[in-house]
Design a protein around this nucleic acid. Sequence first.
DNA 1: CTTGAAAAGAACTGCCT
DNA 2: AGGCAGTTCTTTTCAAG
Lengths: 151, 151
Amino acid sequence: MTEIDDTDRAILRALAQDAHANAGEIGRALGISQPSAWRRIKRLTDAGVLGGAHVPADRAGLGFGVTVFLGIKLATKGRTSLEEFERAVLAIPEVQVVQHVLGLFDYRLRVVARDIADFERVLRRRIMVLPAVGQVEANVLLTEERRDGPI
Amino acid sequence: MTEIDDTDRAILRALAQDAHANAGEIGRALGISQPSAWRRIKRLTDAGVLGGAHVPADRAGLGFGVTVFLGIKLATKGRTSLEEFERAVLAIPEVQVVQHVLGLFDYRLRVVARDIADFERVLRRRIMVLPAVGQVEANVLLTEERRDGPI
DNA sequence: CTTGAAAAGAACTGCCT
DNA sequence: AGGCAGTTCTTTTCAAG
């Protein structure tokens, strides 16, 4: 088990805001030395609490102006249906995130497309053609606000 | 306007996989020199295409074992309702993401909690008490798979 | 657009309190 | 555990082909 104290939490908070912050800066911000901060960061990384950093490329700037969330209810729910559906859906380049969920739907997908017409192409020719797909619900993203969770 | 060529796209792809990749590695992978790769990365960063890297702290490891997606339909939809709802919901620490969407729901929230009981507390005492909240739909996250979009 | 080199800075290591 | 001093490595900048 990994013990996480308040200093660790402060480090996580700092890194959640800026993943490129280095051990020196973080140490200064927390009033501890650079090696000390470095050791803690390494410990957290080795423990798997801090995963690899992600770079969110600006999709809009790259010509992917539309983000759509799909809620999908499978028509058939055997073991193979789930696995096959996940594999098939992960093979679609426009699908960014596949979430297996419990509730009204079975899966939730985050899909990006150049525009609504492009999204319709993806939906009709790539997603609706999957055999297991039952009910589908779509939500088009207007704005998105992220926070640094309750670390 | 920023022109983005295939080499830039390759750099974005490489960085999306590992935000800590350095200019030297990327240059080697693409067959261009280290300073060239570095200049391109800097240009993309300055242009805002490459935002700051995010470090995904492992919520489960920190004791936040439950992630729930909420679809929320507002009961009243005036200008003030939207703004007030966004502000109120962003003030809840367990709310990680607030998405304003178009479709069956008006908002989608990503909420983390320690367990289902903790989530129920958040839902009942923090979210359902908001005046504008109408219909609410919940999906509990089981597994999540991310891909590096179609850059 | 490239190479090569030098300056700056960050990561890492031992040793000490 | 935390800090100091030092070594090694990368990043960053510059000069020049």
